[in-house]
Simulated scan of single mutants.
Amino acid sequence: MDVFDSMRVYVQAVEKGSLSAAATACGISATMAGNHLRTLEKRLGMQLLQRTTRRQHLTAFGEDYYARCKEILRLVAETDAQAQNLQLAPAGKLRISAPVSFGTEALMPALSVYLARYPEVSVDVALCDRVVDLVEEGFEAAIRIGALPDSALIARPLAPYRLMICASPDYLARRGTPATPEDLSQHDCLSFSPAALVHWRLTDTQDDICRVPVSGRLQVNNGQALRVAALHGLGIVLQPAILLQADVQAGRLVQLFANHTLPSRPMSVVYLPDRYRSPKLRSFVDFLVERFS
């Protein structure tokens, strides 16, 4: 017999005043209640109750054992409740990957809200612009920008990644402000890589698409570095709005072609299907969808 079940029967017998009342309270037969008591007494080598046909009395040891059983059962119940809460409440370390610009400018400010909401969770963020392998590199989730290939990963869509074209007031004062998208071909355009300096595509209010050939003397493989280059007047930059919009609002950069639509890129959070049962991962994915959709 389970010793904790036997303790529960004994506690009920003491509090209800009889084994038959304890049996009713525990949903078992009177015979089974008696078996539980005899099992405890045999285990302890001590008598717990002195029973007559009319009433029962606690022995001196039985009185002390009753108090100890109450405390033990209370601790067991609290531990069970704590274990259940840990299964339901997000807790533990969460390792995620995110693109550098999005992670720096958008995810970091949002994490202050997430970590305050879930104080038992810690987050290890790796910022990189390459596609990480969740299994091989031990990530539980990754934020990815662009079309996703077919895979075994589960993807939750986030708001598209918007782009913006900007230049510093100093650059525009020296080189002039392009009046039409076609004028960009006469300017120094900053790029993440040489491959990105082929065409910039814009759509006007009439839904007419304009593909402009662009070129430039500076390429940098980091979005934040391109922002700094634009701030210092080195050229016109095409980068995510989250990276440039604060500078536009402060007047450090000027947004160009605000009446045109630039192509946006899909953004998703991806994770392995079997990991979603984890409360910490589920809480993080749901938070991203809430915050960035």
Rank of each mutant, 00 (worst) to 15 (best):
S268Q: 03
D204K: 02
D170Y: 06
A60F: 00
H199S: 06
D207M: 03
R162P: 04
L184G: 07
L73N: 03
P273A: 05
V121K: 12
F102K: 01
S29L: 10
D64C: 05
P90W: 07
I154D: 11
A152R: 14
D286V: 01
T104C: 11
L172D: 00
Y114I: 03
T261P: 05
L111H: 05
F139H: 01
G138R: 03
R277L: 06
R130I: 15
L94D: 04
D286W: 06
L244P: 10
G251N: 02
V131S: 01
D207T: 07
N85A: 09
R43Q: 03
R117I: 09
T261L: 03
S193F: 05
L226G: 02
C166V: 06
P90C: 10
R277S: 13
Q87G: 05
S6N: 04
A22C: 04
E15D: 06
L48R: 03
A77K: 04
G216I: 06
A13F: 09
A246D: 15
N259R: 04
S122L: 14
L262W: 02
V289W: 13
P149L: 07
V254P: 00
S191E: 05
L163D: 08
Q255P: 12
A23N: 12
Q50I: 14
A33C: 12
A30T: 08
A83N: 10
L49C: 05
R130A: 10
A229Q: 14
L127A: 11
R68Q: 13
R277M: 10
R8P: 01
W200N: 03
R74E: 01
L44Q: 02
Q12L: 14
R55S: 12
R252H: 10
R95Q: 04
G216K: 06
W200Q: 11
V100I: 15
R217T: 15
V237T: 13
Q239C: 11
L226Y: 06
P240W: 01
L234P: 15
S6W: 02
G176C: 03
Q239R: 05
V3A: 06
Q56P: 11
H260C: 07
P263F: 07
P178S: 08
A147R: 14
V3T: 12
R174T: 13
S191R: 01
Y114L: 09
D80C: 09
V121F: 11
D170P: 07
V100D: 03
E120M: 15
D5V: 08
A116P: 02
G17P: 08
A173K: 12
H199R: 07
F61S: 05
E71W: 03
I145D: 00
V285H: 00
V125A: 00
L190G: 04
Q50T: 14
S29V: 14
D133L: 04
